[in-house]
Deep mutational scan, measured.
Amino acid sequence: NDEAKKEAEKLWKNNKSEDEIKERLERAGISPDEAEQWLQELR
């Protein structure tokens, strides 16, 4: 999970869309709710 979150953070810094980041997190096995929460922390 931490690995996926690091990846999400990297994508965020590269200005990827939130949808793309969420999709990537969900593919890594993170629930949509958790993915949404993680994005809010990044904002």
Rank of each mutant, 00 (worst) to 15 (best):
E18C: 06
L39T: 01
L42A: 01
Q40M: 11
A35I: 15
E9F: 13
S17G: 05
L25H: 00
N15S: 07
E23Q: 10
Q37M: 11
L11K: 02
K22Y: 06
Q37P: 01
E18R: 06
R27E: 14
G29C: 06
E18Q: 05
R24L: 15
L42T: 02
A28E: 11
L11F: 05
E36S: 08
Q37V: 08
N15Q: 07
E23G: 05
L42E: 03
L25P: 04
A4E: 05
K16N: 08
E18F: 11
E34D: 08
K22S: 02
E20H: 03
E18W: 15
D33W: 12
I21F: 03
S31G: 08
E9P: 00
Q37L: 13
K16G: 12
E34W: 04
I21V: 06
K10Y: 13
E7F: 12
A4W: 15
E23D: 10
E9D: 03
D19A: 14
N14K: 06
G29R: 00
N14A: 14
R24M: 15
L11Q: 04
N1I: 14
I30S: 01
D19C: 14
P32A: 11
E23Y: 05
D2L: 14
L42S: 01
I30Q: 01
I21H: 01
A28W: 15
E7N: 04
W38T: 02
A35Q: 07
D2S: 11
K10N: 11
N1F: 14
D2P: 08
A28K: 05
E3F: 11
E36P: 01
A4T: 07
K6I: 08
R43V: 06
D19P: 04
A28C: 11
R27G: 10
L39D: 02
L25D: 04
E34T: 13
N1S: 12
D33L: 10
A8L: 09
G29D: 03
K6D: 05
G29N: 02
E18T: 06
E20Y: 12
W38H: 02
W38S: 01
E7V: 08
Q37S: 10
P32N: 08
E41Q: 12
I30G: 01
A4L: 15
W12T: 02
Q40R: 11
Q40V: 08
D19Q: 13
R27S: 14
S17I: 04
R43H: 05
E36Q: 09
L39M: 07
L11S: 04
R43N: 05
A28L: 15
Q37E: 09
K16D: 04
L11M: 15
K6T: 07
K5T: 04
S17K: 05
Q40D: 11
A35H: 02
K22M: 12
E34R: 08
K5I: 05
N15C: 14
A35K: 00
K13Q: 10
S17W: 04
P32F: 06
Q40I: 09
K10H: 11
K10Q: 12
A28G: 07
R27D: 12
K13R: 11
A28N: 07
R43I: 08
G29H: 00
L39K: 00
D2K: 10
K13T: 05
N1G: 10
S31K: 07
L39S: 01
E18H: 08
N14W: 08
K13P: 02
G29V: 00
P32V: 08
W38Q: 01
N14R: 04
Q40F: 08
P32D: 06
E34P: 02
P32M: 07
E34C: 14
I30C: 00
Q40P: 01
L25N: 02
E7D: 08
D33Y: 10
L11I: 03
S17F: 03
L42P: 00
